[in-house]
């Protein structure tokens, strides 16, 4: 994850912003009134925020709300951001995960990932169910993990953050992150193995 914190070229006032500027430089430019900086930050950070929210919540509508809320907090925080103190992306991941946890706490029954379209051909019902199951298997298994394990596994194995970065996002030590991801992976393997047996595609 690249986060260039300084750049010798001053592009402000030129009517455009360069894509290779660091996140905190762009945030400063946005705070100073540069609309182009917000567009680049949205393109750069929005998808990460949405991807994590979707994996944490398993629901598109909720993930969209959380992403919008997290990005709104980014815009509001922009003037107060102190460059060099932390990575903007780390801050945003932390806000996103906290918003996801808040949503989960407010929700009483656990919602499973959105269902796929129902099969339209009776002859291929079993086959399609198996395809859907394979496709959603990881998400279904992720939703069964405790929150902290799910956060660590998603950040490490899907978002590809380093362990120290995850430690920064989750406010834990690197050792604690390693332990969480290892336990999370073991739990996922066990859940997936059980699911394969249930759905009868263990051999293939």
């Amino acid at each position: 994850m690249e986060d260039l914190t300084s750049h010798p070229q001053d592009v402000r006032g030129a009517g455009c912003v360069a894509d290779d500027l660091g996140d905190d430089r762009l945030l400063r430019m946005f705070a100073d009134g540069d609309a182009g900086a917000a567009r680049i930050l949205t393109d750069r950070l929005g998808p990460r925020c949405y991807s994590v929210s979707l994996r944490m919540l398993g629901n598109r509508a909720e993930a969209e709300d959380v992403t919008q809320d997290a990005m709104m907090r980014l815009w509001q925080m922009a003037p107060k951001w102190v460059p060099g103190t932390a990575k903007v992306s780390t801050w945003l991941y932390r806000v996103t995960l906290n918003l996801c946890l808040d949503r989960k706490r407010k929700k009483t029954p656990e919602q499973l990932p959105e269902e796929a379209e129902p099969p339209d051909n009776a002859a291929s019902v079993v086959e399609k169910m198996q395809d859907t199951a394979r496709h959603d298997a990881l998400q279904v298994a992720l939703m069964q993990l405790p929150d902290r394990q799910r956060q660590a596994v998603v950040l490490r194995h899907i978002e590809e953050l380093s362990n120290p970065e995850i430690a920064g996002v989750m406010g834990l030590s690197v050792e604690a992150v390693e332990s969480l991801t290892a336990r999370g992976k073991r739990a996922l393997s066990a859940i997936l193995a059980g699911r394969r047996e249930e759905l009868g595609y263990d051999d293939g």
Binding site: A38, T42, T67, Q68, M71, M72
Partner: peptide, 21 residues
């Protein structure tokens, strides 16, 4: 398969940014 930002969500985020700015 990491999800792309849906277009309407990107518009909402940009609208928020512009309103704040």
């Amino acid at each position: 398969d990491r999800s792309e930002l849906p277009d309407d969500l990107a518009v909402r985020i940009q609208t928020d940014a512009e309103t704040t700015r």
